[in-house]
């Protein structure tokens, strides 16, 4: 699984950092998504997938 993040679309709601904090963080400056693990290990795939689903702005997408 590979995650793509578009910081131009991101609105900094923080749902990803809340849901999968090992995979996603937020920039100190403007709160937009920072991808910590673009290819998360199997143990974090479920949380990462949920974070992508919960993203309000459509900034996150999955490449299986």
């Amino acid at each position: 699984m590979k995650i793509k993040a578009d910081t131009g679309v991101c609105v900094g709601a923080g749902m990803c950092a809340l849901t999968a904090p090992e995979v996603f963080d937020q920039s100190e400056e403007d709160g937009t998504v920072v991808l910590l693990q673009p290819e998360p290990p199997a143990s974090r795939e479920a949380a990462a997938r949920r974070a992508v689903q919960l993203c309000p702005s459509g900034a996150l997408s999955l490449e299986e």
Binding site: V11, G12, A13, G14, A17, L18, P21, D25, Q26, S27, E28, E29, D30, G31, T32
Partner: peptide
């Protein structure tokens, strides 16, 4: 909207 929101989102992050 983006112009205003971007100025504020850094203040409301999870961290």
């Amino acid at each position: 909207h983006t112009r205003f929101r971007r100025l504020l989102t850094g203040q409301f992050t999870v961290r």
